[in-house]
């Protein structure tokens, strides 16, 4: 059963990668990366059970905590870009 879950997670990762590569829209790629992140948490947790050593769960825990920082980075990036574009728009 664990192997089935691992195969499904890897399949979802492949789908995310395909989607990231084909779609022209940048936000789809960011969404794919975010999806990848959460699925890695699951993958590492399942693999640690498959290999029978619970030491790996710390890594899954670290990922669960740190994963969404890059998405917030992208949010601030788009915000700064809009702020800068508005500044240019206001200036003649």
């Amino acid at each position: 059963m664990l192997t089935l879950t691992v195969i499904v997670i890897l399949g979802v990762m492949l789908v995310a990668l395909l989607r990231a590569y084909t779609s022209p829209n940048v936000f789809d790629r960011i969404l794919a990366a975010n999806l990848f992140g959460t699925k890695t948490v699951l993958l590492i947790a399942t693999i640690s059970y498959l290999l029978g050593s619970p030491a790996y769960l710390d890594i899954a825990l670290a990922y669960a905590l740190i994963n969404f920082i890059s998405v917030i980075g992208v949010l601030r990036l788009t915000e700064l870009r809009n702020a800068r574009r508005d500044q240019e728009a206001e200036k003649p």
Binding site: F27, I30, L31, N34, N67, F68, V71, I72, V74, L75, L77, T78, E79
Partner: peptide, 8 residues
């Protein structure tokens, strides 16, 4: 994260 992405 999804909220932040949608907002972005």
């Amino acid at each position: 994260a999804s909220h932040a992405l949608a907002k972005a």
